[in-house]
Simulated scan of single mutants.
Amino acid sequence: IPLGKTNNPEWSAGGNTRNRVYGATANPYDLTRTCAGSSGGSAAALACGYAPLATGSDTGGSLRNPAAYCGVVGFRPSPGVVPGDKRGIGLVPLSTSGPMARNVADAGLMLSVLARPDGRDPFTTVVDGRTAWEPSDFATLPPVDLSALRIAVTEDYGFAPTESIVRDHFRKAVAALAPFMGRVEDTTPDCTGADRIFAVLRGLLFVSTHGTRFDQHPDKVGPNVRDNVIEGRGYGADDFAAAFTDQTAYYLRWQDWFRDHDVILSPAVTVSPRDWHELYPAEIDGKPTQSYYHWLAMAYASTLAGHPSITVPCGFDVNGMPFGLQIVGRRHADRAVLAVAAEIEAIIASIPDLAPRAPDLAALRSAPPLSDAPGFLSF
């Protein structure tokens, strides 16, 4: 039973849920801070108990980032598991939809409905009316022996501009979880060129999706869409050829690396939640970011390789804000990633320093309306 729509940034472009129509959505754990985006309304609604399930879309972490900031679960499946025929460039599966929920089991249940045979998505292979995965299997997750897994941990994938607050909490979380695991190794797949590949391909997607809109209504297009269209048009054929070639090499390196590892654990987002007035972090620990989406690097590391990635709540950082643990597995090992996440979720619940807690709904009810805050409807 659909309950309604939730808020997101303009055309889902950006990691902060603000727009000039419905205003800002704040973080339910601190109304001065962002809930991230683009599926920020979904994450906030889940955290506050409006509904048990929500959908989200994800290119550079648009469902994983808000899930992390709001203390809920967000799962980006492998390309084609949740079919979609609305991508303007269907053969570039950077964007996909996925389930969001308050726990991993519910996310799996929702995925069992979202995952279906639909050949209109070129990455959803349908043979005799069936896909390679059985959708109903996602609703029942098998037990996993974490001690038998080869687990990699990384604070930054070797390139993501990660805040010290995030690094510190991630180390604390890994130390608490390590006794329940087997081989834990500090390592990462080779992510050489990730920033450039993502920038060029994202620019291509924005030109195809929003170029005409920007040309016809430049005064009605927000800064994120505008900047991405302009950036995309600044690239040439050589840039696109290099990006696609480098992405292929990137993908192959990830497949080779995963022969010796089962999952990766990392932070979900590079920074702790900031003031929602900030459109995006222009700097991280004093170092400037490259673009409005550079701070999403922790998420697009796995996007570029097409690997299933899930965010689960894992304690609260030094600012008292929810911390999301990202778990990445082999391509098309979606059920296995959900199963590992469910095991880790149960362990986290047993560790007092990491166990989740709901936002203070009484405090939210008594707070002044966010719509009265300066900058609510503007940038």
Results as ranks from 00 to 15, higher is better:
residue 315 G to F: 10
residue 326 Q to S: 12
residue 323 F to W: 15
residue 250 Y to F: 15
residue 259 R to T: 04
residue 214 F to L: 13
residue 323 F to S: 11
residue 266 S to W: 07
residue 241 A to Y: 15
residue 328 V to R: 02
residue 261 H to E: 00
residue 279 L to V: 02
residue 291 S to A: 15
residue 310 I to M: 09
residue 322 P to W: 10
residue 278 E to N: 00
residue 242 A to E: 14
residue 302 S to C: 07
residue 230 I to K: 07
residue 247 Q to K: 12
residue 282 A to T: 14
residue 262 D to M: 01
residue 318 V to P: 01
residue 291 S to I: 06
residue 273 P to T: 10
residue 319 N to C: 14
residue 240 F to L: 13
residue 262 D to I: 05
residue 210 H to F: 09
residue 232 G to E: 00
residue 252 L to C: 06
residue 222 G to C: 08
residue 261 H to F: 08
residue 241 A to M: 14
residue 229 V to L: 04
residue 330 R to K: 14
residue 248 T to S: 12
residue 318 V to C: 09
residue 316 F to Q: 13
residue 214 F to N: 00
residue 305 A to M: 11
residue 226 R to M: 09
residue 299 A to G: 06
residue 295 W to E: 05
residue 210 H to T: 04
residue 262 D to A: 01
residue 238 D to H: 04
residue 229 V to D: 01
residue 267 P to H: 12
residue 217 H to G: 01
residue 330 R to P: 01
residue 265 L to I: 03
residue 286 G to R: 13
residue 228 N to D: 11
residue 276 W to T: 00
residue 305 A to N: 11
residue 304 L to S: 08
residue 292 Y to M: 10
residue 295 W to H: 15
residue 290 Q to M: 07
residue 247 Q to M: 15
residue 215 D to R: 05
residue 239 D to Q: 05
residue 259 R to G: 02
residue 308 P to M: 04
residue 248 T to A: 11
residue 270 T to Y: 07
residue 276 W to V: 02
residue 235 Y to E: 00
residue 315 G to Q: 09
residue 304 L to Y: 09
residue 216 Q to T: 07
residue 256 D to N: 13
residue 291 S to H: 10
residue 324 G to F: 12
residue 279 L to Q: 07
residue 293 Y to I: 11
residue 316 F to S: 05
residue 304 L to M: 06
residue 285 D to G: 12
residue 330 R to N: 04
residue 312 V to Y: 04
residue 270 T to A: 15
residue 323 F to V: 15
residue 245 T to I: 06
residue 312 V to E: 06
residue 311 T to H: 06
residue 276 W to A: 01
residue 257 W to P: 02
residue 302 S to F: 08
residue 216 Q to A: 10
residue 300 Y to T: 07
residue 297 A to T: 09
residue 327 I to S: 08
